[in-house]
Amino acid sequence: MNGLTAHLEERRAGGRKLLVPYVMGGIPDRGSFPEAMVAAAEHADALEVGLPFSDPLMDGPVIADAGERAMASGTGPLDALELAAQAEVGAPKIAMTYYNPIHRIGEVEFCERAAAAGFAGLIVPDIPVEESESLRKAAGDHALAWIPLVAPTSSARRVADIVATATGFVYAVSTLGVTGARESLSERAARVVAACREATDAPVVVGIGVSNAAQAVEATRSADGVVIGSALVDLVLRSGSDAAREFLAGVRSALDTGG
């Protein structure tokens, strides 16, 4: 069993809901990014690190702008991998990257670098199960868990094919749309989670649009955990790492007490 999987399944077995915060590489700036990682990881079960990219087509304005800002100050996708290695964080790190940087330097080379930078898993939002076989193998060879996405529009057959590839957790996309905070959790989220549950025993984590403690609690009535992205990136940029830590402490305690 992959290290990340074992880690998450052990926590889930202990009745804990999984909190997976998302930080953008190089944000709020190169110097303070390690501090932001440490703050975000403190109450986390795993930490997602976004690699800045020129054409982030699954991302809404908050994360897309953060990525542009990171790149403007010299943090590209591969720089972000290396920066992430600089911080000692308490939670396993997962790289979230678009496919072209991987394709460009080569799947094996990329996985080697990610593993060397201390990553334990990989999320690639623009590669469907049909195209990902060689990358999944490279990831597996470098002890990187493969975390595939299931969408509200995925057919039952697709869900089965997708979750069969999961080695860390399954990322259940809560709604149709790009990343960004939402007023409320989509009522589709529970249905996506249920579809995943039908097909796998792996942990199912809901992401896209989960913005606060109340929504996290609601999502984890069916799911094993949540990813919190845009709301956190926005907070890191506006108010800094301490505010981010405090916000996540609130989410953590809401998850632990059930609201």
């Binding site: 590669i127 469907p128 195209e131 529009t153 995925s154 697709r158 996309v173």
Partner: peptide
Amino acid sequence: VDGRFGEFGGRYVPESLMGA
């Protein structure tokens, strides 16, 4: 059948679009 022109083409998109 997979929409390739030799080694080019294919479908590299978010899962949300695969059904469409």
